[in-house]
């Protein structure tokens, strides 16, 4: 499902003395099946964009295209439920949204709101609990008896149970330890590939954006200032610096090495494995040349 923001502007508390503009003429097209990262500092407008992606906020100017629905500023938008079912959002610290007596009831809350039968929703819950790496016995427990990491997984299962076509992730690994972080990010990558999801990752981690995304958009002071592939975005450190952003550690390392040895490696590398391979190749060339 394609998502398109056309000259979207948004102002909080519009028409009051406390009005605050958060987005200015944002143009962003997210094609179906892509893994899009939206990067920016706190306050850059990335969480305001996030809330537009399933019409929790409606643009105060411009238009928003979500699949075949168009939401235009100033016009009433009725019945947004189909949009919300198709675009699932995993909010930052999603464990804060748990409320039911049991994990099972919490997971089926979403799908049942969208008219899925209890039987079908329960079936989904059983499949998903395994997918997020938790035992089936946990379904009967109270979510409030679980550890923080387990609660996060339950909340994620609750969003996945709606079977969205687009999944929006807001700093999904905040506060997790390194292992938890990697497991969660790998889980979303697997889902992205297997279910052909459109994945939108809102983050301030350059590392995650470089490793997982195939398209990147940079937000700065309420504007979408740069879009492109990870190679295009991270290859241009000077441009990034003007938005007070740094290239990922891997890219910075590659650049330092290149400066030291006085030549460029073949490609811009985005993972440690790629970088190790490129350096090895350069070392071999060097030996052969001697």
């Amino acid at each position: 499902m394609d998502i398109q923001l056309q000259k979207v502007s948004y102002a909080y508390a519009k028409g009051t003395p406390f009005e605050k503009r958060a987005l200015f003429d944002v143009e962003l097209a997210i094609p179906s099946g892509s893994y899009q990262a939206i990067i920016g500092h706190t306050g850059s407008g990335k969480s305001t964009i996030l809330q537009h992606l399933n019409a929790l906020l409606k643009p105060t100017e411009g238009a928003l295209q979500i699949g075949d629905r168009t939401i235009t500023a100033g016009k009433k938008a009725k019945d947004l439920k189909p949009v919300r079912q198709k675009v699932g959002i995993v909010f930052q610290f999603p464990e804060h949204q748990l409320f039911e007596e049991t994990v099972l009831k919490d997971i089926i809350f979403g799908p049942m709101n969208f008219g899925v039968s209890e039987q079908e929703a329960t079936k989904r819950a059983h499949k998903l609990i395994e997918l997020v790496g938790l035992p089936h016995t946990i379904l009967e427990k109270s979510p409030f008896d679980l550890s923080g990491g387990q609660m996060r997984r339950v909340a994620i299962a609750g969003v996945l149970a709606m079977e969205p076509e687009v999944i929006v992730l807001d700093e999904p690994t905040a506060g997790l330890d390194p292992r938890g972080r990697k497991e969660i990010m790998d889980l979303f990558l697997q889902l992205h590939k297997e279910r052909n999801l459109t994945t939108i990752l809102v983050t301030h981690s350059m590392e995650d954006a470089a490793r997982y995304a195939d398209r990147i958009a940079i937000m700065h002071e309420g504007k979408c200032v740069l879009t492109g592939s990870p190679e295009e975005i991270f290859g241009n450190a000077e441009k990034l610096a003007t938005y007070r952003l740094e290239a990922p550690r891997i890219v910075r390392f590659q650049r330092e090495l290149e400066a030291k040895i006085g030549r460029r490696l073949q490609t811009l590398c985005l993972t440690e494995e790629e970088l190790a391979r490129a350096i090895t190749a350069a070392v071999r060339e060097e030996r052969a040349g001697q």
């Binding site: 330890d177 390194p178 292992r179 938890g180 990697k182 550690r249 891997i250 390392f253 440690e272 494995e273 970088l275 190790a276 391979r277 350096i279 090895t280 070392v283």
Partner: peptide, 19 residues
């Protein structure tokens, strides 16, 4: 459940590749 610092991870990979 912990990770290695970036430089150590890369060192490990490079050694594996015979650098």
């Amino acid at each position: 459940g912990l990770d290695l610092p970036f430089a150590m991870k890369l060192t490990k990979l490079l050694k594996q590749d015979g650098v």
